[in-house]
Every structure is written in C-alpha cells, then in structure tokens.
C-alpha cells in the first residue's frame, strides 16, 4: 500500500526519534479581558503547563468544564498559541508561528476529530475526506484515490458518495476519522469523540483509535468526560483549574 511508503517519507523516526513528539514548557494561556470582550479581569486558562508526549502514545485528557482541557487541545492542535512558554512539535518551536504556518502544520501533522463530526453537508463522504488534501495542493484524481483508501480503512467504501445527512452518527465519525488521517499525520486530536454516540458505537470508534495507534503508530490524544473513553487510553492527564494535577498510566497502559 502506498500509505506505508509515504509514512516512511514524512514520519522521520516516528516512534523512535530522539526528540519527543510534543514538548510543552511553561505554557500559559491567558485570555485578556479585551480579547474576551468583557469588562472583567483576565482569565487564566492554562497555568505553567509542562507536558511531554512521545511518539505512539494513547493519551486521555480529563477535567471538569473550565479546567482548561479544550484550551490545551487547541494549543496542542496549533489552533491557538500560548500566551507565553514554549511548544516544540517534533522539535520545532511553533508557539510563535503565524496563522499561515500554523495552517500548514495542522494540515500535515495533525488530524482532528470532533464531538459533532463537523462534516461539510454539501459534500459527499469522499469529498469531505479529501478536504485536507485540497489545501495540500494535491491533484484531484490523487485526492480521490487517497480519500477512497482512507474510507476503506474505516469500512465505509460503500458509502463514499453519501452525504453527511445520509450517514448515521457512527458512520459520520468514521468519515471524520478518515478525513483526519488522509494526510497521514503523526497526531490525532479528538475532542469528545464519542460525545454524540451511543455506547456500542462509542466502543467501535475507540477500537478504531486503538488500532490506529497500534497499527499506524499514530499518537492519539483524546479530550473527554467519559471514564470509558479514558479507560481506553494508556495515559491519563487530569487538569484542574488550568494546571496538570494528575499524569498517570492507566490500567490499560500498565498492562501493555
């Protein structure tokens, strides 16, 4: 399969590199009152976070609402920048990059899966999956080929021409996973990936994550409320009030 060759090309030393995949040092994220738009005081979302995540980890981030886990995920996903501190992604500083550079990093290195799927309603499953390739300037025929391969991997080859409104929740999330992986990123960020799914479908999705992590060596980072999801991870990071209060191996991790 072509995917193997591509991964060898861009995933230089994935899983065995000397540098950690993600390295955060003294990361603060403060929402200035002007930025928030209210007359209130500044809001500290993340306080002095030090966090290292290696290649091939399967991590769950938990915490109550307002604990800063979404902010952390946004910064990890290069959708937001720390107010201060350093964020090295594969050894490169990304904390001070501009929005165009961050867009390129998101496009190549990070896949996103959301609670509400975020599929474009006008597009077929195939076109939704191919969307990141559009911004990587991949030729149309090549985009379709790679999107099809990715949809086959999540067992949706029979649904490639369906629109999102013709898909079930589980199918939609599988399309979203295919989209997240079509560029062969090293990191998959999932924000409450099972939040809109029933428990049986949730387990299917978690199984896909586990197999991606196991078979394609993708680093999976999930933000969740759900203990079942957290239990599927090998490492659990718990946030409280913008700070890491717990960072442990889960039973799954310990047994692995």
């Amino acid at each position: 399969m072509n995917g193997e060759g591509e991964r060898a090309k861009n995933g230089s030393g994935r899983g065995s590199g000397e540098k950690p995949l993600i390295e955060m040092r003294k990361v603060w994220r403060v929402y200035r009152s002007a930025e928030v738009g209210s007359g209130e005081a500044d809001v500290i979302a993340l306080k002095d976070i030090d966090l290292t995540i290696g290649h091939g980890e399967l991590v769950a981030i938990m915490g109550a609402s307002g604990s800063g886990k979404s902010t952390l995920l946004n910064i990890l996903g290069c959708l937001d920048r720390p107010t201060s501190g350093s964020y090295l992604l594969e050894g490169d500083e990304v904390a001070s990059l501009g929005s165009a550079d961050l867009a390129r990093i998101r496009n190549r290195k990070i896949g996103f899966v959301f609670q509400s799927f975020h599929l474009l309603p006008r597009y077929s499953a195939l076109d939704n999956v191919a969307l990141p390739l559009v911004y990587a300037k991949v030729r149309r025929s090549e985009r379709r080929r790679r999107a099809k391969v990715e949809l086959q991997r999540v067992d949706l080859e029979s649904r490639i021409h369906h629109r999102p409104n013709q898909l079930s929740g589980g199918q939609s999330q599988r399309v979203a996973i295919a989209r997240a992986l079509v560029q062969n990123p090293g990191i998959l960020l999932a924000d409450e990936p099972t939040g809109n799914l029933d428990s049986k479908t949730s387990l299917e999705i978690l199984e896909i994550f586990a197999s991606l992590n196991r078979d394609r060596n993708v680093t999976v980072i999930m933000v969740t409320h759900d203990p079942i999801v957290a239990a599927a991870a090998r490492r659990l990071i718990r946030l409280y009030d913008g700070a890491v209060v717990e960072d442990t191996k889960t039973p799954a991790g310990a047994s692995a």
Partner: peptide, 16 residues
C-alpha cells in the same frame, strides 16, 4: 462560519 472554521482546522490558510 462553521464551514470556514473546519476548513481552517484542516489546513486552509486565511488567504485560501
């Protein structure tokens, strides 16, 4: 707006 947000998330630059 959501479509724009999604496109940006998967790699659309502001100029795109």
């Amino acid at each position: 707006t959501r479509e724009v947000g999604l496109r940006m998330t998967v790699g659309a630059r502001p100029v795109d």
